[in-house]
């Protein structure tokens, strides 16, 4: 039995210390998923905390034959999807971004120079903003696929979808992202686009 299984078993028996170990281990993946889903650091923090609370309260329902990581990310994804759906009907917009509020990203040890890194960072931020325009479930599927290297089967299990539905959602999302990226670029560099040959 590895450490994680032991912590889960102890936590199921009521050990808060063991559960704290699980929080320590999974805080980054859970927070990252919530941040990519909700796009705001404060909302992501709140959602990640709530995810762990839900896991704590429902630990007796956890099936030990399944990976704890998959289970907790599934809780986080469902929570964020619900929250995004509620937000759709909210009167107030929560879309205001504060530059200082952006979370810290791990530095890239392979980065050749700061300028390249800054350009990459800009592109990543732009992509992060484009993710917001995807449907909540599509966004969860994309995040699980590209940030966590989940297989289509794992995504299907986590989001209660069929494998073919996951495939079609991933393809649809990739196409949508590419189209948005294309139109962003053409807005940002209109003179370059006018010199380009037509793609369609």
């Amino acid at each position: 039995m590895n450490d994680e299984n032991a912590w889960v078993t102890q936590a199921q028996q009521g050990s808060d210390e063991a559960f704290t170990q699980l929080v320590e281990t999974y805080q980054k993946p859970v927070y990252n998923l919530c941040y990519r889903m909700l796009s705001e650091p404060e909302a992501a923090e709140d959602a990640a905390q709530e995810t762990f609370l839900r896991a704590y309260q429902n630990l007796h329902r956890y099936d030990n034959s399944r990976s704890f990581g998959t289970w907790i990310l599934s809780i986080a994804a469902h929570y964020c999807i619900d929250r995004l759906r509620k937000r759709k009907f909210s009167v107030f917009s929560l879309d205001v971004e504060d530059e200082d509020g952006m979370p810290f990203e791990l530095p890239d040890p392979d980065s050749p120079n700061p300028e390249t890194e800054s350009g990459k960072r800009e592109d990543r931020d732009r992509l992060h903003l484009l993710l917001k325009d995807l449907d909540a479930t599509d966004r969860a599927a994309v995040i699980m696929r590209y940030w966590y290297d989940y297989s289509e089967v794992e995504i299907a299990q986590s989001l209660n979808l069929t494998v073919s539905a996951v495939k079609s959602r991933l393809h649809r999302s990739r196409r949508a992202l590419a189209e948005m990226w294309q139109s962003e670029k053409s807005r940002a560099y209109p003179e370059r686009r006018s010199r380009e040959s037509l793609a369609f």
Binding site: T20, V23, K28, A44, Q49, E105, L106, R124, Y146, A178
Partner: peptide, 30 residues
């Protein structure tokens, strides 16, 4: 340009890094 955008977004998706929470997450959870 559409397929170029597909390549570019795919590359970004495959290289984007993990966002990490502010220090003290576990304490705040407790």
């Amino acid at each position: 340009s559409y397929c170029s955008a597909l390549v570019e977004t795919g590359r970004l998706l495959n290289t984007t890094k993990m966002a990490v929470p502010a220090a003290g997450f576990t304490m705040r959870f407790q």
